[in-house]
Design a protein around this nucleic acid. Structure first.
Lengths: 346, 346
DNA sequence: TTAAATCCCGGTATCGTTTGCGTAAATTCA
DNA sequence: TGAATTTACGCAAACGATACCGGGATTTAA
């Protein structure tokens, strides 16, 4: 069964006019008499006429839709970001087409090809944790596809970037842990390929150096799947808790890593923060209800989505190729809660 | 700047052929010599030719995209459902276009018009909590738009429906609370307009009746916005905690209601389950990490999304109008945790 | 040798819309 | 009154791809 809409041709036939006249009447052209306009408009309204967007797309060579590539929709950060993207897109008359990479490089490449072949007018990208080769993205860029990367941006490519101040996020979080008396702070970050990882870890290191605490590389670890898989977090935690220089606090650099560490500690009956403190990047909105209430670095996800979508649409609608690229950096918010409370004397 | 793809015309010109020949060669028609086919295929591959989906859509009168209308993307249940929908759609070559109603009737109507005007081939609907008038949906149905409703289904309209056994979910949850010694079980449900509300409340009532516990209507309340707004939950809780027949347990019938009750109890320092037990419908995946760990009724969200998408695509691709409509009912899962632990003697 | 069959390919209409161009009819100006 | 202008509309091409129809060239059968 098919949903058949009324066309300009139907209106023309019904009113004994040509399609061009109807088209111009609908667009309120000066070439059409007001009498004819009224007839056309009235009939169009009665029949609930809507221009066929596909025919328009073919003619105008634009689809009025934007693609969004994220690693996982069912992730609080990304669903909040998509929320922001969708609101801007709707407002400006664009569709939002979603694709997920599941933190996998091959899926990311095929998703990008998919989006490009579906002729979206532009793409919002947050690269997967498994991506170290950016040639597909670069190809799209070279062929003129408007691109904006957000959150997990692509550092060495020319494009608009929307992200948070990851360095400061990592720095502030670490400083907070130091201030609360923790001496051996571990850092479990996402894939080392990601820009956010590098920046967050740099902030962590600088905070330690500034407070004259040495950096112990055995306290730093990376998750190739950004914590999406429990086992990778488990393995790292096992290693950390067994090693000589056992940490008394952990900075977790992604949503999934944070919650998987909590799950690990619950399983192993490791008390937070008595045995080990925890502070993580997370956008879940009930971290305050966890046991213990979780200290987090939160990102303005919806805001990032909105800004990224606005930049992309501006780029799409610009007459000339974009030459200067913006890098929007939003602040993170640090929520100090029980999981990183002042260290009690052992 | 625009992304310009190669067309069949470009290939024809480059190879000195007509567009029809190229088209047929690409589709491996028997009418084309294998020599010509090879030339065309080789050149197409070299130039990375992809058929323009918009031109195809115009010709075939189908867009290969499906619309999804949910109340809120940034909600664990819906993001999980979209996850399932997206995986099926991708596999079958369809786009997923997302729209949100934010539990608002007017936004739902405009989102439906939006999706229809963007010429999607079909729509997956989970109606908003504010919807009591289904005429827009019915209009779409009458005009032949393939529709499938999921989770919050539209009971009296003819369409495929995918949902969980809400009655049993409510019944089992209530029975569990009774078994654990609770005598005055309140029920805070979503908007009374929703099918899920009616069914869950019916299960709740029947469990009470079966155990010879009377039904006190002052213990049953509804949230017009499905708990999306904290204040509506707060008002109901204030009322419940002050009234004569004060509940010793609560059955919360939506994700947001559940977490907002937890937040309320934390704010007011009401101990769960000592002062009041809590059991809620929720799809968050860290309810086990909350304090206390939260007893929940969980829905197979991704599975529902997958099944709904499959039904919709089957409907779209069917030659003749669908006459018999399926109602798929999936089981809920009850997780018994600390928030509904056995009642301690007061 | 001629008619029929087969093989390959091109021309053209079509989907729905916009737009440049052409042109009758109506109007204005000299 | 005749010419110039304006008004108001239709024709046809274009966007990219497909498919029906038709036809020239070669091969096969009679």
């Amino acid at each position: 069964m098919k949903y058949e809409a009324i066309t300009i041709k139907d209106i023309a036939k019904a009113l004994g006019l040509s399609t061009s006249t109807v088209s111009r009447a609908l667009r309120d052209s000066y070439e059409i008499s007001s009498e004819t306009k009224d007839r056309v408009l009235a009939y169009a309204k009665e029949m609930n006429y809507r221009p066929n967007p596909i025919a328009l797309s073919l003619k105008e060579k634009r689809s009025s839709s934007i693609g969004v590539l994220v690693s996982e929709i069912a992730n609080s950060f990304f669903s909040q970001a998509i929320n922001g993207i969708e609101s801007v897109a709707q407002e400006k008359g664009y569709n939002v087409i979603i694709a997920q990479s599941k933190e996998d490089f091959e899926r990311e490449v095929s998703a990008l090809h998919y989006l490009a072949s579906r002729s979206v007018d532009g793409i919002l990208i947050s690269v997967s944790a498994g991506t170290s080769d950016f040639s597909t993205i670069n190809d799209l860029y070279l062929r003129g596809m408007p691109l904006v990367s957000f959150d997990r941006v692509v550092d060495h490519l020319n494009m608009h970037k929307v992200k948070v101040d990851n360095y400061k996020g990592g720095y502030d979080a670490t400083q907070h842990l130091i201030k609360n008396g923790y001496k051996k702070i571990a850092c479990i970050a996402s894939s080392a390929y990601l820009s956010i990882t590098e920046e967050r870890v740099a902030g962590y290191k600088d905070a330690l150096i500034e407070k004259k605490q040495g950096i112990d590389e055995t306290l730093i670890d990376y998750c190739l799947h950004s914590g999406l898989i429990y086992e990778e977090v488990e393995a790292i935690m096992d290693k950390l808790m067994k090693q000589k220089n056992k940490p008394d606090a952990i900075l977790a650099c992604s949503d999934k890593i944070t919650t998987n560490i909590m799950r690990y500690c619950q399983d192993k009956k490791i008390k937070i923060p008595a045995k080990i403190a925890l502070l993580g990047f997370s956008n879940l909105d009930l971290t305050d209800l966890l046991t213990p209430s979780l200290s987090v670095v939160k990102q303005p996800a919806a805001e990032m989505g909105r800004i990224a979508a606005e930049l992309l649409i501006k780029m799409i609608e610009s007459k000339r190729p974009t030459s200067t690229f913006e890098e929007v950096i939003l602040p993170t918010e640090l929520y100090q809660r029980a999981s990183s409370a002042k260290k009690t004397k052992p």
